[in-house]
Design a binder for these strands. Sequence first.
DNA 1: GGCTAAAGTGACCGAGCGGTCAACTTGGTA
DNA 2: TACCAAGTTGACCGCTCGGTCACTTTAGCC
Lengths: 200, 200
Amino acid sequence: MPTPTRPLRADAARNRELLLAAAEEELAERGVDASIADIARRAGVAKGTVFRHFATKEELLAAVFGNHLAALTDAGARQLDAPDPGAALLEFVTAAADAMQRYDLTYLRVLSQNDPRLSELRDRLHAIVSSLVDRARAAGAVRGDITGTDVFLLLCAPAHTVELVADPPPDLWRRYLAIVLDGLRPEGATALPHPAPAWP
Amino acid sequence: MPTPTRPLRADAARNRELLLAAAEEELAERGVDASIADIARRAGVAKGTVFRHFATKEELLAAVFGNHLAALTDAGARQLDAPDPGAALLEFVTAAADAMQRYDLTYLRVLSQNDPRLSELRDRLHAIVSSLVDRARAAGAVRGDITGTDVFLLLCAPAHTVELVADPPPDLWRRYLAIVLDGLRPEGATALPHPAPAWP
DNA sequence: GGCTAAAGTGACCGAGCGGTCAACTTGGTA
DNA sequence: TACCAAGTTGACCGCTCGGTCACTTTAGCC
């Protein structure tokens, strides 16, 4: 509702997209320690231009992470009215774990503390995951003592697990996602030793 | 076999221990980005002293990580002849996951590439985990398609999962360890979509 | 085509980092 | 106690980083 924000000039709009794309690639390759100078170089602009579009590095990172959060939220929303709740959750969780290969959600915690837009996006995603989990639980596809927050937190476990091996086969994460999912199923579940964490 | 290494002078030995302790605390608080200057300050010595004991920052980190790896290896070895193989694996994995709360094994991959002593320690730990898993599998406590490497890689999953919440209850990791362990049990296991990774 | 505000540029800044070293202090020894 | 090698110190170096700004270039409008 604030900031009328009259439209960007054509070159500025183009450079903004180039920067976001460059940041995305650089972040995927080097992680959050990727430097602004490298991102600018990859985008083919000067360093000063980066700061014309994003006041700080954090703001640029928040923009990139925000895009991915939004995409994931959309993917989740699309599964909300799928006929089979168990399959819907599986579909979403697989897409999410795949995305986590490229983007470390861990840094999201720090980032969303200072960026209300990002924390709202995060909460929206959390809400959708919770809905998916509730439906799957009601259908008997996941055990009764699992919450949406649990699944939300476990989303990047497969990506993290794979990180430890030097040159991971590109689909290895699926193995560990499958193991975690087996742990979420009602069959053979044992009592959990700690209550589910509150959100946030 | 090399470097006879005559004993350290008393003050040097004391400072070395102070440095290792300070590095341990600083690393636990700030992670691998903790600075040498801060570590030196915490130990109550000058920065130059750090480099007299450890030629590079990597070497200091390797010393700290090495201590923890060795402790974990010992804990694992102690379970090798326990009467119940399933309980033995559970005991070890719990201790390891607890330790991972404080030390991010992810960096171990980078570190052990340049430090043969560290990579040997890592391989020893891997071998012990593999033995524990083999025994547990033979006893029917874990599913047949799980390898020691799988469990080795999954060791820090609970710690990573908990990292996403702002002020995690100190025992929350046990919840996610339990979920992963349920995924490792034979009951309700589904076929895994990717073969186990080779070691290393 | 000429004007102007918006956008782009790159040299520059200060802070913090890992690492060095000449000068100084000190523990162990004969 | 006198000596010296071992150990300590902190100023210093080179480098990289995020961020700034006076100046130049340019898109969009009449």
